[in-house]
Write a protein that binds this DNA or RNA. Structure first.
Length: 587
RNA sequence: GCCCUCAUAGCUCAAUGGACAGAGCACUAGUCUUCGGAACUAGUGAUGGCGGUUCGAAUCCGUCUGGGGGCACCA
């Protein structure tokens, strides 16, 4: 439709002799200004100035509008000129078709082709074995999963990757503390690991001798020379990874690739060694460094003075490992924004060594989850474990359910709602901004919240169920409206009378826009557009729901209202899917 | 000290350079003999300061103030 309008305007400009004006066609924020709007007159009004004639913007808009009016397609009811904008109003034919289109496409409605034929790999979450899986990882996972789904919905073949730091000083700290406290491999739990890391980290910074001991453990882990250390290491790593897997399952993420630092390390070190011979890196105080200052960045160590690869070399190696495994067109790496400058340096080095991979790689950094008391730190043990947070939310969900007393609830349902609440609260805001986390305030169940979306969905589902029970829709169409539903979906003109912009008029005007939102959200790497859209959509539906009786055998408009409800649940469900939030049928 | 980022209503957040800056929470006043009140309607209330670019600025540029992050062998 947008294309049609753009062509309409282009034709008009050609006829008026100003074919090269750049203009845009958008949805006006306020629906009373039409379904589409163009700024063409304000952009090109000066082109129409002559010595004798100095038309105003509005006059130019009238002029262009006059030409467009002669050639209106069927779906456009009328156009109006207001304040220099030209506004386009769609009619019943368009809305009727759009509802049919939604019902026909069902689960595919919203899938686009912007990235068709491309391979994409998204890396996110990246928890470290031996350390806690904390709420920061929850944030990274939520964002990465949503981005993955956006990429998928726009047509790319997508792989999810998780990079786990199973080697390095942080591991040595935990292993050292476990040995020091005589904890047997069999007694190690995820909880113990998190605590031991904090203990080891504190000890590392406290005195020189301990520091040396931990560094020694670190070397031994790399070299695999000490049997006792290996045993603790292997057991701890296995346990951590299993524990992470449990959390991923609850969150609805399934990774295709797991990368481990213990494998990217050597590879990265080799790349750095070769590049050093070419003069890309240089030696300094025994370490191999990249001089970022040449590019307005800062110097970073890629191989330390002990000859061990740092995270920098490992990340460099990972870029190539990923490509060798899965030749991507787009690679997105999601991390916290404290790594933002770090990544600029690594990518700058990559630009010289792997220019083709560099061009395909995007680093996205998300904000931090901060406690009201300040920054959360796993180094000092001041973390909120993901598990604790989820359990806390879940307890509150159950309490709420018990109070409402409608449904015998299951653990699974409570999880779906809890995860939905958490994910929504993260995704509703722009990636990159911090969330100040407060147990009491940050998770909401009403208004602008995940459960509000889920509730709207469940309620609409319940209406469809009733429509089936009352034989206004036959049972074989089920909840998911198939092609036959169209036979029952009557023409738009049988719908309720529209008084200015009634609730259902707003609903119709939002539903067809979903695919554009999904496309825009990918283009801007901004899942919050989907979140805002869904809130607006649900609000429109709930207003409609209160104002109109939907299922009513005596109301000739009822079939159309039911079709609209079916289209709404479909779009909402698809939208929730894009965000990685589940849409229970009852709650 | 240098670099990066952010500043929107009492609070938590939205807004491809476009029309009157949108939500939710809180507060105030309402709706419901109707399909699920985790709902709906209405009201109060905001672009940190000063310049600039533009037909048009929360958005772009400069500057000041104030948060947050980063700056060599941690990740």
């Amino acid at each position: 439709m947008k294309d049609k309008i753009e062509n309409l305007i282009k034709d008009a400009l050609v006829k008026l002799g100003a074919p090269d004006a750049e203009f845009s066609v958008e949805h006006p924020e306020d629906l009373k200004n039409g379904d589409y709007s163009t700024n063409v007159a304000m952009v090109c009004w000066k082109k129409f100035e002559t010595n004798e004639l100095k038309p105003s913007r509005v006059q130019v808009a009238d002029m262009i509008g006059g030409v467009i009016k002669k050639n209106l397609p069927n779906e456009i009811e009328k156009i109006e000129v207001a304040g220099g904008f030209i506004n386009f109003y769609l009619n019943n034919i368009f809305f009727e078709d759009s509802i049919k289109e939604i019902l026909k496409s069902s689960d595919n409605f919203g899938h686009g082709k912007a990235l068709a034929g491309q391979k994409a790999i998204i890396e996110y979450t990246d928890p470290n074995p031996f350390k806690e899986f904390h709420i920061g990882h929850l944030m990274a996972n939520t964002i990465g999963e949503a981005l993955s789904r956006l990429v998928e919905w726009n047509g790319a073949e997508t792989r999810r990757a998780c990079y786990q730091g199973d080697i390095g000083l942080h591991v040595a700290k935990a292993v050292w503390a476990i040995l020091k406290n005589n904890i047997k491999p069999d007694d190690i739990t995820a909880d113990v690991l998190g605590r031991m890391y904090a203990v080891g980290n504190l000890a590392y910074e406290s005195d020189e001798q301990t520091k040396g001991e931990i560094e020694d453990v670190n070397r031994k882990i790399y070299n695999l020379t000490d049997r006792q250390i290996n045993e603790v290491y292997n057991q701890g790593k296995k346990l951590s990874l299993e524990y992470f897997e449990k959390i991923y399952k609850k969150l609805g993420t399934k990774f295709d690739f797991y990368f481990l630092e213990s494998t990217s390390g050597n590879f990265g070190e080799e790349i750095v060694r070769e590049a050093t011979e070419k003069g890309i890196f240089e030696k300094s105080d025994g370490a191999t460094v990249f001089r970022g200052e040449k590019y307005g960045l800062h110097t970073r160590v890629f191989v330390n003075s002990q000859g061990l690869p740092t995270y920098e070399a490992k990340d460099l190696g990972l870029m190539k490992i990923k490509y060798d495994l899965y030749p991507y067109d787009r690679s997105v790496v999601v991390t916290g924004n404290e790594q933002s400058d770090y990544f600029k340096v690594v990518l700058r080095a990559a630009a010289i060594i792997f220019p083709d991979l560099y061009k395909k790689t995007t680093h996205i950094s998300h904000g931090m989850l901060r406690l009201p008391s300040g920054k959360m730190s796993s180094r000092t043990g001041e973390v909120v474990a993901a598990e604790n947070l989820l359990a806390e939310i879940s307890a509150r969900v159950k309490k709420k359910m018990a109070e409402s007393g409608r449904v015998v609830f299951t653990e699974e349902l409570a999880d779906q709602i809890s995860v939905g609440a958490l994910k929504y609260s993260i995704l509703k805001q722009a990636i990159g901004r911090d969330i100040i986390f407060d147990f009491e305030k940050s998770i909401s169940f009403e208004g602008d919240s995940g459960p509000y979306l889920q509730y709207s969905h469940a309620r609409a589902q319940s209406i469809l169920k009733k429509a089936i029970a009352e034989k206004l829709v036959s049972a074989e169409h089920g909840y998911s409206p198939a092609g036959e539903f169209l036979v029952l979906a009557p023409s738009r003109s049988q719908g309720p009378a529209e008084t200015s912009f009634s609730a259902f008029g707003v609903l119709e005007r939002l539903l067809y826009r979903f695919p554009e939102i999904v496309e825009q959200a990918w283009r801007e790497l901004a899942p919050q557009h989907v979140a805002s859209y869904l809130i607006e959509l649900c609000h429109a539906f709930n207003t409609f729901y209160v104002a109109e009786k939907i299922v009513d055998a005596n109301d000739p408009a009822s079939p159309y209202k039911i079709a609209l409800t079916a289209a709404f649940t479909q779009v909402l469900r698809n939208g929730l899917t894009v965000l990685g939030i589940s849409a229970p049928k009852e709650m």
